[in-house]
Design a protein around this nucleic acid. Sequence first.
DNA 1: AATTTAATTGCAACAATGTTGCAATTAAAA
DNA 2: TTTTAATTGCAACATTGTTGCAATTAAATT
Lengths: 140, 140
Amino acid sequence: MIIDLNKLLERHHIRKTECRKEMLAYFYKKKYAISFPELEKAMHLHDRTSVFRNLVYFEEMGFLHKLNDSEGIAKYALCEEKCFGHLHKDEHIHFTCTNCNNTFCLKEKKLPEIKLPKGFFMESFSIVAKGICLGCSSKK
Amino acid sequence: MIIDLNKLLERHHIRKTECRKEMLAYFYKKKYAISFPELEKAMHLHDRTSVFRNLVYFEEMGFLHKLNDSEGIAKYALCEEKCFGHLHKDEHIHFTCTNCNNTFCLKEKKLPEIKLPKGFFMESFSIVAKGICLGCSSKK
DNA sequence: AATTTAATTGCAACAATGTTGCAATTAAAA
DNA sequence: TTTTAATTGCAACATTGTTGCAATTAAATT
């Protein structure tokens, strides 16, 4: 799958800076959710402040969603098509692999129904599982 | 419900220091999960390092379990009876209230069954919901 | 009750993560 | 090419989490 990052930025009227293009390219290349420290190291040519601000900006624009992996580490992952603006529709389980330490969005499965006790009113919820991922379990 | 903290510490052969007694008393008083910053401020007579080390220690001893609230903030909550050592059996939903910002353990409800795609093997999972809690919804 | 000893504390120092203000730079509109 | 508004990089800082170590203290031992 080849995605034209220039088009993506243009469509949303976002300035195509080197920093942003590099960041998005990194997200499209990796198949897992990226932590700030990892991205910071990968974007060595750019200041960590700019990288961080763009993460937040991309999240607001609906390109990325923020999540916490099973260890509570904040990570960002590419959103699904149906997300726009801050109206995220990333309704899937996140899965952290205890072997490779990567966190994946499991879009294949529907979320279960969650029931709360009387008096509690739910706006949203998240599920983070941990264990061994497909990549690690298929390696001998 | 009155819990004899001295007995609790004795039973586990843990030294009854002022710091630890204050910390546990705070946990028994509050009905929600406590963040490190909150506890640090409440334990103003003791050094933050000691408070933090005891949090980790209590977690290892099976008194407290660590969780991340819906905003990813690390919090600690009292464990259920059946937890001992690091073999935590806190199988319940956590709920963060967007009004009072507190996080509760919802022990009343069973956890749903979680299904993963082929190739993913689950060791554990957590569910964090957010919305309005019982306390806030019952106030007009 | 005094002594011993091993656990615990407080302090200092630090690492990692997240955030702000602002002047200089740059993308893209005019 | 010029203008201008967004973006960047820098410095500085706040918060959260962590380590080493000497001083202190709980409780076991005499």
